[in-house]
Design a protein around this nucleic acid. Sequence first.
DNA 1: TCATTTTATTACCATGTGGTATTTTATGCC
DNA 2: GGCATAAAATACCACATGGTAATAAAATGA
Lengths: 186, 186
Amino acid sequence: MNADKVLDVAMTAYWQSDPADVSVNAICQMAGISKPSLYREFGSEDGLKRAVLDSYAEQVLSDVFMIVISGNGLQETLAALVDFAAADPRMETGCLFYKMRAGKHRLGPETLARVEDIDATARSAYVALLQAARDSGEWQGGLPVEAGASYLGEQIALAITQRASGEEPARVREMLTLALSVFTRR
Amino acid sequence: MNADKVLDVAMTAYWQSDPADVSVNAICQMAGISKPSLYREFGSEDGLKRAVLDSYAEQVLSDVFMIVISGNGLQETLAALVDFAAADPRMETGCLFYKMRAGKHRLGPETLARVEDIDATARSAYVALLQAARDSGEWQGGLPVEAGASYLGEQIALAITQRASGEEPARVREMLTLALSVFTRR
DNA sequence: TCATTTTATTACCATGTGGTATTTTATGCC
DNA sequence: GGCATAAAATACCACATGGTAATAAAATGA
């Protein structure tokens, strides 16, 4: 019955609009299947969303994860992150993960757990990045690594969210670069 | 019939939860009135939300507006803004205006127009603040005033939104201070 | 006091939601 | 072919939403 197509359609819809604004009915219609078929495959709306998020994580988030754990220097990594957030065409309508996270309270338990899992993974990747930079002396100053990691993560989320709301990429880049300039020793 | 009480109840509900998650039914119940009464007074859900936003603007936003146009120096003004965002008890559950702005697409035309109006007002206040700082030489560097104003506004919004999502005030302050440190000549 | 107008309530409508019992259609298998 | 089995769709459920027509209650004026 083509579960992959349903996943694709749902991901596109959730991603381009907002997970809270796309109904199961709409997805069935777009995918050209009936509701019971969808429910037999995914169990519930929560199950669908979790499956979509899984798919999104391995199709999209894995790329940015690679950037963070690349092992290149901090400045180079930050530059790559800025490029991704401000220029990658996939982020034109925002990041599905951030959209879900922003609407946490509207998610079912499965999807919520996955969101928090991804959040924790991302955070620890940021921590590792900054810790390495500190160890190597590339990043100095008294700011705790954990605080820097939170900051970094939130700034990237903000930049991508701004892009989703129609802000011009050039301006987004400008602001994100400014925000991340705190990691540059001047 | 007590329109003020309805406004109060609705504001509290919208503010503490989210404008998109509070139904007209729920507000009527909480305010102890019937639905037609509410509709005679406010016309529509959109009208209610706009009235609530008006009330919020004069009760709460006016305070932060005062801070921005105080005419004190940039550093002092930023410090006051950080205090407001990170420590004012009224921002414990976030800012109603930012919540509405984040869910723009779910708003009716009246409320949306008001949101955009407030947004523009805030932006021009930030521009004026930074322009004055530049003129007086307190803020140097090549960053355009408009870009700085966008950045400032978004950082404050981010900080308050983080508070709403349960982040500890101390951490919010830390991150916002870090973000705004770009305005400090070092 | 009685009629008129204003205010509030009850009871309802159409629509959309997530989810499912029931029936139809297709798919092996002998 | 004929029959069991799995997969699909139709038609429905209960519930909640924003919004309103019909109606009762209360205030107001003469």
